[in-house]
């Protein structure tokens, strides 16, 4: 999302000078012009703001809706609600499909993050710091899991697992190991992407200074490089965890009876009914993602990396 840049970077000096010079803001789309704009200008600005509002309304309408309906007192979602309650949250946890789905997704996402983040970080470090032949190609391969449609990659893994089960004479599909392996395909590219982005902004001078003062390479790495990288790694870990936890398509063919992830359990439930219990499960996820992203933003400004 963030690699695209058009033309020259913002010329901050010029921009500041212009900001100081101008008496009234003149940017035609962003701020009101001089006193008394014409009707067409005002209508244009109104249409512009309406479009901005509409875009965010469409994005947030379903999310707000889910949160609101999770508190409705009746079992079938109708408007207006009879009353408000929090009992659906308890009911959701009592439903075995959701509770077990939650625990399975948690296990998978944690394990996939624990495996994918070190691998991705090591690769990103080498890709940015060393001059390796075929660097662009390796980068493409590592990011490829994000480019291949998840349903296609999931079908390929499904066939691969069935083949491997024949060869090795053991269960792979619908096992914890099989699902974790699939989800590492999500955590590696996200880690490579986020750690690469945070590495690009780092100054090498501190590392060189440490080396000049006699620190061995390992000491430089553990005492200088790793601490500087920590925000990037934390962001990568949180991002990878969320992306794996919320994934539906890649896991869809790889789950089985007895071991299902939360998004798959929710999908099968929703194909029959939408009720406040499901809304409660969904709201819990919205809350989790929101908290994790706000924490991530404290480590690395998300506006800089996405």
């Amino acid at each position: 999302m963030g690699q695209v840049r058009a033309g020259p970077g913002p010329d901050t000096v010029t921009r500041e000078a212009v900001t100081r010079m101008r008496a009234a803001p003149l940017s035609p789309l962003a701020a009101p012009a001089l006193a008394g704009p014409g009707l067409s200008v005002r209508l244009g600005r109104l249409a512009f703001l309406a479009a901005v509002f509409l875009a965010y309304a469409i994005v947030f309408a379903p999310i707000v809706m889910v949160v609101v309906t999770s508190f409705f007192d009746q079992e079938i979602v109708t408007f207006p609600p009879d009353g408000l309650t929090i009992r659906w949250y308890l009911n959701a946890w009592a439903q075995r499909d959701f509770a077990r789905g939650f625990l399975t997704s948690l296990q998978i996402a944690l394990a996939a993050t624990a495996i994918g983040v070190p691998l991705g970080t090591a690769a990103a470090l080498a890709l940015v710091r060393a001059t390796i032949p075929g660097r662009g190609f390796i980068n493409t391969v590592l990011l490829a899991p994000l480019a291949v449609p998840a349903i296609v990659a999931g079908s390929a893994l499904y066939m691969f697992y069935l083949r491997a089960e024949d060869w090795l004479d053991m269960d792979i599909k619908a096992t914890l190991g099989g699902l974790v392996a699939a989800n590492v395909l999500i955590t590696i590219p996200w880690t490579v992407r986020l750690v690469t982005a945070s590495l690009a902004g780092l100054d090498r001078a501190a590392e060189e200074a440490a080396a000049n003062l006699g620190a061995r390479p390992l000491t430089v790495f553990t005492r200088i490089t790793l601490p500087m990288l920590r925000p990037g790694i934390v962001a990568a870990a949180l991002f990878s965890f969320v992306a794996s936890f919320e994934n539906l398509e890649l896991n869809l063919l790889l789950v089985g009876p007895g071991r299902t992830t939360l998004p798959v359990a929710m999908l099968s439930y929703l194909e029959f009914r939408m009720d406040p219990t499901l809304a409660a499960v969904a709201t819990a996820q919205i809350l989790m993602v929101t908290i994790l992203m706000l924490v991530t933003d404290r480590f690395v400004k998300l506006s800089r990396i996405v």
Partner: peptide, 13 residues
């Protein structure tokens, strides 16, 4: 980052 299933649930409502 909130799954598509969650948002589809919102649209159903």
């Amino acid at each position: 980052l909130v799954g598509n299933v969650v948002r589809a649930a919102g649209w159903l409502g």
